[in-house]
Amino acid sequence: MIRLVLRRLGSSLVTLLIVSVVIFVAVEVLPGDACTAYLGRAAKDPTILAACRENRGLSTPAIVRWVDWAAGFVQGDLGVSMKRNKPIADLVGWRFRNTVVLALTASLVGIPLALVLGVMAGLARDRPLDIALSSGAIFAMTIPDFVSATVLILVFAIGLGWTNGVVTVSANAPILDLMSNTVLPTVALTLVMVAHILRLVRTSVIDTLQSDFVTMARLKGVPFRRIVWRHVLPNSLLPSINLIGLTIAWLLGGVVVTETVFNYPGIGRLSVDAVSDRDLPLVQTIALLLASVYIGVNLLADLLALALNPRLRTYRA
């Protein structure tokens, strides 16, 4: 068990290392470099370009710069943004907090809702409740998020005036001020994640209901309600742990479109800004940061699945 955990941890670190190389190389192979990209037309002036390159240390070999960058990342030194000329850590810090706030709210609302609805749909297989939930889920999955976000703003902010349409507070606003602005983004995100998780849980519940051990439980006289709680749920919810992990990672990875539509000051919007500013160091660092979060959350989900599933936990070769 401990060896298994160590192995997973090790492979996660290796993955992260490879990702950092890929991100770095991808930026390196672009025509020009960070300075020509950022300066654009101004790069035609050789003195400005040379000054910029000198400033950014671009004359050193790529491998040295990668080591500096990666080592700095590990120590919390994320480098300096070109456009804003500020430490990236300062820029990212607040926005990442905001993204976490939104992700947590959406998870706390969406995951329990998805599990409950998924189980209900599975238990009511092919009956009206299931058909309504399943078709609703497909509907929610197929609508692009910018459409659902826009419709939400149109109806609830502009039409009914219940809440703000877009976020108007600054990135470093207190959490409470921020929270009052997260209602519509939360709803928009919840729609998508509930749809995906619901469908998986529904299928899983249906499969488990057809398993031999559920038939056996019926035939030893276990009442239906107890079969659901003791025999069906633990076995059918286990596979959803990994999808929930993926969903949380997706939420933390900056839900770019949703944040942009609602003008939410999170990491997703920052990355869009960084790209449009051609601020390559910032782009690079956000990419690596999001990759770390993604890998970390998935690792946690895998370990949780391992801990909760006796078949994996106590596997004896």
Binding site: D212, F213, T215, M216, L219, K220, G221, N235, L238
Partner: peptide, 24 residues
């Protein structure tokens, strides 16, 4: 039926490995 099944009429299933709940 629940009172009879597993009580006075009990079943030994085919393929016990799959008829026992894996999480209990």
């Amino acid at each position: 039926l629940d009172a009879v099944r597993g009580g006075t009429i009990a079943l030994v299933p085919q393929n016990a490995g799959q008829s026992l709940t894996p999480t209990i």
